[in-house]
Nucleic acid binder design. Structure first.
Length: 488
RNA sequence: GCCCCUAUCGUCUAGUGGACCAGGACGCGGCCCUUUCAAGGCCAAAACUGGGGUUCGAAUCCCCAUAGGGGCACCA
């Protein structure tokens, strides 16, 4: 396959969410696979909707996911600039070409009039469509009014009859009756092009070979093809990707409909403790298949297996359980040092400052026990806190008096103090023996010791914890527990 | 209201006319392992939306119905 030139062309109007990120991902995969280029282009022709900071978050999100671009607004490239506002003059030129060749006309209707027409049509249960008033104007008359300073938009002149067939690679031919299409606006009265014109011009100018975009564009797809044909340009390969639906399956995915532990925003997923690898694997599999038994694939592995023919045309419900599963699995695959490094910011955020050495020893202990990086704080935070505060009821042996529990704790402390080498393997045997001599089940006894030493009822294996916590601290925490259970 | 798209286990999907009494993963249930919690291993339940065609043969092709989704701006 020839090197593909692909692009991700978001508008800077909101946050990067998994729908957009997945579109970017598929584009990147195709570029990687074919040794082509992935281009980031900003569709900011609607100046009113631009949101401050959106572009920055967008780029940060893509970078975090490892979806790097070879040409873009920040790094430039052979077709700079990569923001559409800055390309205004280019679209103007092309619009005039369409005007000159009779594929477009000037429209002097005001926004207010258009609004009224539309409302009347809707009231009459008709499809809202431009009524063609200015299409009937002679070019000479239109020229005169424009020269007189009357504001106008430029509309595309659609074929009055017949049908248009456009080819989508994932759905096949799509045919629409031209009478159902509208003489849509190419250039606004402020002189800036609308998406439809701007995107087609840019795709052409930038040599885009494949357009992978969301299904929200399927409705205007024939329009875009018509523009390209009016210019006589070569068409890219079109792939309209399926949408993500809410977990409930009712409607397009949105911010609502997810719990506080979930998010559809890439930036929030990162904050929640998800790995970019897991997010990529997860997004990739909702809407495509990679012909592999293994579901957890790196970007390079996915690129090698990516196939435009395996894109799924139907909508997919977002499934957060699967993300959790993938994240846990990716965490378990990480090298210890890698995981330790990734988990550190989450401890810091919780106000803990693990020393590197201890963190490295502790990491294998929580590695199989966490789903998100953030979980490590709950599971292993006690290693880095100066003191623990167990719940008194966790210190009591079920069915026994507080005195007996205290005695057991004390016996453990004495026994542990006598162990010559402070290693978890050496700690376990005497404690098991002690449990037996106290007439307790090991699990019961260990549960109390766990609460005393870790302050938690759930923790990594007890003796590993003791080893890392150290002899002195372990014994001190046992003594504290005795006091908590009651006076001697 | 109009246009377009889609339709396999609860969910993500495999399946591209015979190799399918439909395979995998998540989730759910059970068992094993086990000091808690996990992880890990094993086992199980669970689907071709309905109806018509085409064909020797249909989950796969066609039509209709139904359901779901997307779109119908001087937004993208």
């Amino acid at each position: 396959m020839k090197p593909a030139r692909v692009r991700f062309a978001p508008s800077p109007t909101g946050r990067l969410h998994i729908g957009g990120a997945r579109t970017a991902l598929y584009n990147v995969l195709l570029a990687k696979q074919t040794g082509g280029q992935f281009i980031l282009r900003i569709e900011d022709t609607d100046t009113k909707r631009t949101v401050a900071g959106a572009l920055e978050e967008l780029q940060a999100g893509l970078r975090w996911l490892g979806l790097d671009w070879q040409e873009g607004p920040d790094i430039g490239g052979p077709h700079a600039p990569y923001t559409q506002q800055a390309r205004k003059a280019l679209y103007q030129r092309y619009a005039e070409e369409l005007l000159a060749r009779g594929h477009a006309y000037r429209c002097f209707c005001t926004a207010e009039r258009l609004q009224q027409v539309r409302e009347a049509q809707q009231k009459a249960k008709q499809s809202p469509r431009y009524d063609g008033t200015c299409r009937a104007l002679s070019p000479v008359e239109a020229e005169r009014r424009a020269a007189a300073g009357e504001p106008f938009t430029i509309r595309f002149k659609l074929p009055k009859d017949g049908a248009t067939t456009a080819h989508d690679h994932v759905r096949g031919d799509i045919t629409v009756d031209n009478t159902t299409l509208d003489d849509f606006i190419l250039v606004k009265s402020d002189g800036l092009a609308l998406y439809h014109l701007a995107a087609m011009v840019d795709d052409h100018e930038m040599g885009i070979s494949h357009v992978l975009r969301g299904t929200e564009w399927l409705g205007t797809f024939p329009l875009h093809v018509l523009i390209i044909r009016a210019f006589g340009w070569e068409e890219p390969v079109w792939c309209h990707l399926s949408v993500f639906l809410k977990p409930s399956g009712k409607g397009k995915m949105s911010k609502r409909d997810v719990t506080s532990e979930q998010s559809i925003y890439v930036a929030e997923l990162e904050e929640l403790g998800y790995l970019s690898e897991a997010v990529n694997s997860w997004m990739a599999l909702m809407g495509a298949s990679f012909g592999a038994e293994e579901e957890l694939l790196s970007l390079d592995e996915m690129a090698a297996r990516f196939d435009l023919g395996n894109l799924n045309p139907s909508a997919a419900r977002v499934n957060f359980e699967k993300l959790d599963d993938f994240n846990g699995k990716w965490i378990r695959r990480l090298a210890v040092d890698d995981l330790a490094g990734r988990v550190r910011p989450f401890f810091e955020k919780a106000g803990l400052h693990p020393d590197p050495d201890t963190l490295r020893r502790v990491t294998p202990l929580f590695q199989p026990r966490i789903v998100t990086l953030d979980d490590a704080v709950e599971m292993a935070g006690f290693f880095f806190r100066p003191a623990v505060s167990p719940r008194p009821e966790d210190l009591l042996i079920k069915g026994q008096t507080p005195e007996q529990s205290r005695a057991a704790l004390q016996a453990a402390r004495t026994g542990l103090a006598a162990v010559p080498e402070w290693q978890h393997a050496a700690l376990e045997a005497p404690m098991r023996a002690l449990a037996e001599s106290l007439g307790l089940k090991a699990g019961q006894f260990f549960g109390v010791l766990r609460a005393a030493v870790t302050g938690q009822s759930v923790s990594p294996p007890l003796f590993e914890c003791m080893e890392v916590v150290g002899r002195e601290t372990t014994l001190a925490r046992l003594a504290q527990a005795e006091a908590l259970v009651g006076p001697a």
